[in-house]
Amino acid sequence: TSAGAIGSQDAVAARAGVSGETLRLVAKRFAETGGDVHATVTRKKRELPPVPSPVTGEVEARLIAMACSRPPQGYTRWSLRLLEKHVALVEDIPNLDHSTIGRVLKKRNCVLI
């Protein structure tokens, strides 16, 4: 392109080393901020504070201990949903859904056998 010519969106994205989607989002934000470059490139402040995870180190340890214990009578092994039901029965462990329990066990390389 000649000096002063902007070029296509794809050409601009390629020169900037970003994807066309990134360029589109930055252009949209630039328009939303009324052309304020600083507001466009700085991160937005969170509207709500982050919610702390209910899974503390102690909760993790108790959950792993439960998963390593003998399953209840009538079951040959623990499942994530069975753990979820038993966690709900323990008063000092927050209720956790089976997907959260699975993530905790996976993070600690604990496999239900």
Rank of each mutant, 00 (worst) to 15 (best):
K45D: 12
R81W: 04
L82F: 04
K107Y: 05
E21F: 11
A16P: 09
G57L: 06
H86Q: 08
K44M: 06
V59L: 00
C68D: 13
A39H: 07
K85F: 05
S79F: 09
R62K: 12
I113A: 10
E91F: 06
T100N: 03
A67E: 01
D10Q: 15
N109R: 13
V55I: 14
G74W: 08
L82V: 06
E32I: 06
S8C: 11
V59Y: 01
R29E: 07
C110T: 13
F30H: 02
L48W: 07
S19Y: 09
T56D: 02
G20P: 10
T40M: 04
L112M: 01
R29N: 03
T100I: 11
V90R: 10
G74L: 06
F30R: 03
F30L: 07
I101R: 03
M66N: 02
P52C: 04
R29I: 05
A5F: 13
Q9H: 11
L82W: 03
R70L: 14
T42S: 08
Y75Q: 13
E21I: 14
K107M: 06
G74T: 07
I6C: 08
G34C: 04
I6V: 15
T33S: 05
A16Y: 10
L63W: 00
F30W: 04
A39M: 10
V18D: 10
P72S: 09
L89A: 12
I101F: 00
L48E: 11
G35C: 04
W78M: 01
K45R: 13
P94C: 07
T56A: 05
R62F: 01
A3N: 15
G4E: 10
I93K: 01
T100G: 01
R43L: 13
